[in-house]
């Protein structure tokens, strides 16, 4: 009787251990997925495109901003030149190393800006136009499988690795097959949902996928949303002079 009980117990324990090992073996490497998401978004070559940013606020007419963007991710350089509206035409954001400068053609002055600041009063942040470093900034604290529309996704719960990352908690919906982000929720330190981002369309350029349409919804100010459409993407080499203050000044003459 005792032997039978022991056998059953051992068998159950063995099966459970094997099952948990199997489950662990099937668990995707989420850190690698984050790295892959970063890789797909970050260009090893130069990149340029035109971004159209449409911001909507309740009771106000939508504001439309068009901007030309130039990126050189390996050197952490990027330049945004505002093309429209006329009142902001010629304003620019230039990142050289870790310094982000804002240029105002009216005053002809450069001032310090930050990737953490909102782009032109929209719900998009300056960092949304730049390369991203999810794998470097976050650890995957939790995960689950889910479905977003017709796509099976990993729902990843990310916690910031240090206390200087803008959003301390981020939730990502990553499409399983292509490992691209379809949706993101950004939370405050007090864990209040601040912003939801949707990436419904991706375009392929070279071996990279980049979101060709993005929708940012402000969850604190109900009704505030910003849609970004990307056109004329190119990975052609860009001249070095683009990433200089002198160019921003010259382009306004």
């Amino acid at each position: 009787m005792f032997r039978k009980f022991m056998k059953t117990t051992l068998l159950t324990a063995t099966l459970l251990t094997a099952a948990s090992f199997a489950a662990f073996a099937q668990q995707p490497d989420f850190h690698r997925i984050l790295q892959r998401v970063d890789e797909l978004n970050n260009f090893t070559t130069d990149f340029s495109a035109v971004f159209t940013v449409v911001s909507e606020k309740p009771g106000q007419d939508p504001s439309v901003t068009r901007a030309q963007i130039f990126r050189r991710d390996p050197k952490k350089q990027f330049l945004i030149v505002i093309l429209k509206p006329d009142t902001q035409k010629g304003q620019g954001y230039l990142q050289v190393d870790n310094n982000l400068w804002f240029y105002d053609p009216q005053s002809r002055q450069f001032s310090h800006s930050s990737l953490k600041e909102n782009f032109q009063s929209s719900d998009a942040k300056n960092s949304d136009f730049n390369q991203q470093s999810l794998a470097e900034d976050y650890t995957v604290a939790g995960s689950s499988d889910g479905k977003l529309g017709i796509y099976p996704v990993y729902v990843l719960d990310l916690k910031a690795k240090n206390n200087e990352v803008t959003y301390p908690h981020v939730k990502l919906w990553v499409r399983k097959d292509l490992e691209i982000v379809l949706k993101a929720e950004d939370y405050s330190l007090s864990d209040r949902l601040m912003r939801t981002a949707y990436y419904p369309n991706y375009a392929k350029i070279g071996d990279k996928y980049f979101p060709s349409r993005m929708l940012f919804i402000d969850n604190l100010n109900t009704g505030n949303k910003t849609q970004i459409t990307v056109t004329d993407p190119s990975i052609a080499a860009l001249p070095d002079y683009l990433f200089t203050k002198a160019y921003l000044e010259r382009v306004n003459r």
């Binding site: 953490k116 910031a160 206390n163 200087e164 990352v165 803008t166 959003y167 301390p168 950004d186 405050s188 330190l189 007090s190 209040r192 601040m194 604190l220």
Partner: peptide
């Protein structure tokens, strides 16, 4: 609601 940045620059809502 108050939207602010913490002493180290993270976004927070109170």
């Amino acid at each position: 609601l108050a939207q602010l940045r913490t002493a180290t620059g993270q976004l927070n809502v109170g």
